[in-house]
């Protein structure tokens, strides 16, 4: 699966956890997901759950830098690194 396909899936997922009245700007991969108010800070766990379920990425031993989950671009970079 290429980056565009990962992105399409990710956006589909983010649409389900975003705040209803906050539109997701799919053209801006660098939009801060929390800082823009799109999701609340605890909902980051839902992104972690998504990455575990869809890509089998396990953060429990090494932890994760929260900065890696703060935008679509960063999440896609993470997916690419982990699935290489």
């Amino acid at each position: 699966m290429n980056r565009a396909a990962h992105k399409a899936k990710l956006i589909q997922f983010l649409q389900t956890i975003r705040r209803p009245d906050r539109p997701l700007d799919i053209t801006d991969e660098h939009q801060g997901l929390i800082t823009s108010g799109l999701i609340d800070s605890l909902a980051v766990l839902e992104i972690v759950g998504y990455l575990e379920q869809e890509y089998g990425i396990d953060f429990s031993e090494r932890g994760i830098d929260p900065g890696q989950l703060n935008s679509i671009a960063h999440i896609l970079d993470l997916i690419e690194r982990e699935t290489r």
Partner: peptide
């Protein structure tokens, strides 16, 4: 709830 998050995302 905090622990559920920590166990998934924070290194021990």
């Amino acid at each position: 709830a905090l622990w559920r998050l920590a166990l998934k995302t924070a290194r021990p």
